[in-house]
């Protein structure tokens, strides 16, 4: 249904928590996503001009890198960008066909490729650039939160997580129920001050991003020693008074 659903009480809000403090920008999640979804039920993710001048294709997840700040606070930040399964998902309400919909029971936003007419309006409505058009099939594609993995009863429980989460080598991606304050993901968001991307646009994304941090080791500042303690002799003395036993 193209109206946003009323979540029943106790409904889940499944989503990803992505740790910008840990993401090394390796593209593993992006490629794994492409691989899973090419094979999976969502259908093919096309590639165009595979071996030619302008290789291009449909991806659900893309990895950017940025430089932020200046001086001591500066940092290189890698940002994996995919659908955030927003609560106020304008991409859903603008859809004229009902192909775009948000599930009441877990909040996942999906495209029904059999209904989609490829009007592209939903991609215009998404501020995150999370939807990509499949030129071959003429329909819109987007991240499915790996719905065909997370509910697959044939998979062992531990493997019922999105492909991108399973593959992330630095474990910067976490999956879970953000409606449950006790879940691992909710706890992480709380502890690490997880944020919304483009919060000011009011889409209320489910996915959260954990901001970069900076570990420090407090020590007393040290100057070059002067006076009696300085010089090779002084230092050696300091070292070698100790009784040593081999």
């Amino acid at each position: 249904m193209t109206m946003l659903p009323k979540s029943p009480p106790g409904a889940k809000k499944l989503g990803l928590v992505i740790d910008l403090d840990t993401c090394v920008g390796c593209h593993a999640c992006a490629v794994s996503c492409k691989e899973w979804n090419t094979k999976g039920e969502a259908g093919l993710l096309p590639d165009y001009d595979k071996y030619g001048a302008e290789p291009d294709g449909v991806w659900f997840n893309r990895i950017h890198s940025y430089e932020s700040g200046a001086g001591d606070g500066c940092r290189t930040v890698n940002l994996p960008r995919s659908c955030l399964h927003c609560e106020d998902a304008l991409c859903v309400t603008v859809c004229p066909t009902g192909a775009s919909y948000k599930r009441a029971e877990d909040g996942i936003v999906l495209v029904d490729a059999d209904k989609c007419i490829g009007c592209k309006l939903c991609s215009w409505a998404c501020p995150y650039g999370a939807r990509e058009f499949d030129e071959d099939a003429g329909v819109m594609r987007k991240c499915t939160l790996c719905i065909d993995r997370i509910y697959d009863k044939d998979l062992p429980q531990a493997e019922r997580e999105p492909a991108c989460v399973a593959t992330c080598p630095s474990r910067a991606r976490h999956f879970g129920d953000l409606a449950d304050p006790q879940s691992k993901v909710s706890q992480l968001v709380k502890k690490r001050g997880g944020v919304d991307l483009l919060g000011e646009l009011g889409y209320r994304p489910t996915n959260k991003y954990l901001p970069p941090r900076k570990a420090t080791i407090p020590t007393a500042p040290r100057e070059a020693p002067t006076g009696a303690a300085s010089g090779i002799g002084g230092a050696l003395l300091k070292l070698l008074d100790r009784a040593l036993s081999r």
């Binding site: 390796c26 490629v31 691989e35 090419t38 399973a166 593959t167 080598p169």
Partner: peptide
């Protein structure tokens, strides 16, 4: 690798 793969690994296909 304990289950993780790099981008090249998944692109092996």
């Amino acid at each position: 690798n304990r289950g993780v793969l790099c981008a090249k690994g998944s692109a092996g296909i």
